[in-house]
Structure formats: structure tokens, C-alpha cells
Design a binder for these strands. Structure first.
Lengths: 206, 206
DNA sequence: CGACTTTGTGACATTTCGATACAAGCTACA
DNA sequence: TGTAGCTTGTATCGAAATGTCACAAAGTCG
């Protein structure tokens, strides 16, 4: 017990969390390690071992209570509670993100949406008014923004990243196709659906 | 050499591919294992070993030619050439995907876009006309669709998945928040930005 | 030519993962 | 009540993957 939380374990826990959240949406209240395994391609024994390292969350003969397990995993990952994020770009992608609820389900609150296009500034997206990009430093400081999400064209991405770094944001989630240069204490995660798809394709071919 | 291509190696190669594609877009023509390492958090030695298992692609003192390496990795992953995909849902997310070029960069051609909303059917998204969902079986058969991309609300996702499976599609890329049930010979990849973000957050906290 | 960079590769310790096995605990149902 | 059937929690063992150090070979640059 009290195993070390390695990056590998953390990665798997995140994937369990995804399945658990989806299963909850479908009305399920408990789930077995076997069932999680089918959706994640992780060995059931491995799943149980990952979890039992931090406590006894399951009920024998039944499985895991979904609500409890979600709460426990988020506690283990130290990502409980609300996190404020700022979204850059109010185009199709930005609007899709803002209205999807996919972040809200995991404790991320979109606190602000920025754009530079005068036609978009002032418009309503979801329940937020699009702000002008120049308000970035002010908003980050006042609203405790922890994460910047970039849904902007590749050309402008580095500029936004630089400004976010200057404002003290340490986590950037990049949907653009730009390669971002940031100081080493800043974490950049680039979302790359096509690459994931290539991997899925390889996975299928195997 | 001629190492085995394990899933772990394939996953890393996919990530190298992402960085290479981005670097190419930024005008670079060659890159070192050290540089790739900085963007992927993979050990430079590991990168060189992953690559050297399949041939000698680099030049000592210089690094790897980006175009060559992209072609080689795609050959290794057996994902060279064009793959036709069908997109479901012409909402914000669907439009974002269709117009972003993110799939085109990796050899995926969006061959058709479907929706059920009469207001959207017939409209132009990118350079494709949105078709009615009922054309699915016909289009899949005639255009050699290999992958279905689901940008639909969670409620409708399972139905689309079922119809895709019935039409013979074996790879489904799921942007919805539904848990999809499919036969075991079908690969489902669910994109989950919020979960990736949670993992990035944990990564940062470490 | 000489300094410097970077690949390709070997060797080895460490960590991680997969597979198997099984007792203990829970449910369901007769 | 009692028995059959699941599922968890956990141990153990071997196989596989990974990190680290080291270094020769091959290229660039002044």
C-alpha cells in the first residue's frame, strides 16, 4: 500500500477516470475492474493493483462504486476541486470547447474566453462574453487562471503562449499545430487528434 | 536492427511524428534527438534506439532530416498513403475538424460529412457538402471509408457507432462523451481533452 | 587540422508489466 | 440459513521495457 504514484500509474488512473465519467453519464453506479479493462485495454489485475495501492475502494463480488472511485482518483491525482481555465480563440473550435461541458465534467471552469476579432468580442459564447485579448494579464491575475487553452490558428499560438507565461500561467493546452517554445517550468500539452488516429490505425492493423 | 515494433515503440513514434510535423510547419528541415526529446519528454538515447532499430536515418553531427524521418516513421507504422475518413456532426466541432487541416497533414482525407439536421444538410463545410445521415451505408461502401469520426452529441453516438459497424468500418474516433459498445474487432479511440488536461496538471504538480 | 556535435550501439541495473493463483468478502437465491 | 458464483485484494515469478553510462564513428565548422 501507499505505493509510489509514478507517471505510468498516473496516466492509467487518468484513463480510468475517463471511463468512469462516461459510465456515470450512462447511469451506471458501479463497475468492475473487468469492465474498465475492456474499455482501456489495461489488464484487470493491473487496475486492481493500481487502485489497491492507495486504499480499498472496491466491494468484493460487486466492483467499484463509480462516484466514490472518481472522487478517490481525483484525490490521488491531487486534482480535486475547481480549476479556472482561460480559452483563447472564439472560432468554431473555441465555441465547441466552451459549450461542450467536457471540461466542466472534470472540475475545470472556463472563466474567460478571448479573441482579437472585433466581431467576436462582446458576443456571447455559452454563458460567457468574449473578451478582447488585451485583457489577458488583468484577467489572469484577478481570476486565478491556472491553465490556458489555445484554440487559435498556429500563427498566433506562440504569441499567446508568451503572454500567458508572462502572466504567470504554468500549464498550456495547445490545440494549434504550432510547436511552442516555453520556459522549462511551464508544461505544454499539445492535442493531436490525427496522431492519435494514426496510432489507433496502427493498433488496429496489429 | 529490425527490432520488434511493440505498442510502446509505436506510441513513441507517433509522438515523434507529431513533433516532426510541427517542426516542418515551422520551416525546420532537420532536428536532433535532443530537440525531439525536449518536446516529448522522451530520453534522447531512447529516441535514437527506437529509430535505429529500423535503419540508419540520421546524419552524425547533424541530426535527422525531417521529411525523410516523417516518411520513414509512417512507413514503419504502416500508415503511409491516404486514408478516407467520414465525419459525423456538422456542428461547431465538426466544422472545426473539417476546416483545420489537422487530419489532412497526416494523410487522412475527409471524404464525407454527415448530419441529421435538415438546416445543415446541403450546406458547405470546407469544400464538402454536408450529406444526410441516411446516406451512410452507401457512402461508406462506395468511397472506401476506413475511419468514422464522431463529433455528435453523446446521445446519438452509439447509434452512429452501430451503423458504422454494420457498414463494415473498423476504426471509430469518438469525440463524444458516450461509452461506446462495439464488437471486439472494432477499435474505438475516445478523445478526452479534459482527462489529458488532468494528467498534464498532475505532471505539472510533480 | 582540430574542436565540437550528434548518431549508432553496447552493457547493465532498475523498473514496470503480464500472468497466475487464491483466500476473503459480498450478493443472490433457493 | 446456506450454498453457489462473482469480484476484490494481494502475493509471487518471469519477461519485457526503460534509464543510464559510456564510447567509437561520422559529420560540421572554423
Amino acid at each position: 500500500m501507499a505505493d509510489q504514484l509514478t507517471l505510468g500509474v498516473a496516466a492509467r488512473l487518468s484513463r480510468y477516470l475517463q471511463v468512469l465519467t462516461q459510465a456515470k453519464k450512462m447511469g451506471k453506479t458501479s463497475i468492475s475492474s473487468q469492465a474498465i479493462s475492456e474499455y482501456t485495454n489495461v489488464n484487470p489485475t493491473q487496475i486492481r493493483r493500481d487502485l489497491s495501492g492507495f486504499g480499498k475502494f472496491g466491494k468484493r463480488g460487486v466492483g467499484y462504486d463509480i462516484d466514490t472511485l472518481i472522487a478517490q482518483i481525483r484525490k490521488i491525482l491531487r486534482t480535486s476541486g475547481q480549476h479556472n481555465i482561460a480559452l483563447f480563440g472564439a472560432g468554431n473550435l473555441g465555441q465547441a470547447i466552451a459549450t461542450s461541458g467536457v471540461f466542466a465534467d472534470h472540475g475545470f471552469r472556463i472563466s474567460a474566453i478571448f479573441d482579437v476579432d472585433p466581431d467576436k468580442v462582446g458576443q456571447l459564447v455559452g454563458d460567457l462574453v468574449v473578451r478582447h485579448y488585451s485583457e489577458l494579464p488583468h484577467v489572469v491575475a484577478n481570476e486565478g487562471i491556472m491553465v490556458g487553452v489555445l484554440a487559435v490558428p498556429g500563427k498566433g499560438a506562440q504569441q499567446v503562449a508568451d503572454d500567458l507565461v508572462a502572466a504567470g500561467v504554468k500549464i498550456i493546452f495547445n490545440y494549434s499545430d504550432a510547436l511552442l517554445s516555453v520556459p522549462s517550468d511551464v508544461t505544454v500539452h499539445t492535442s493531436s487528434p490525427a496522431v492519435e488516429l494514426l496510432y489507433a490505425l496502427y493498433f488496429y492493423l496489429t
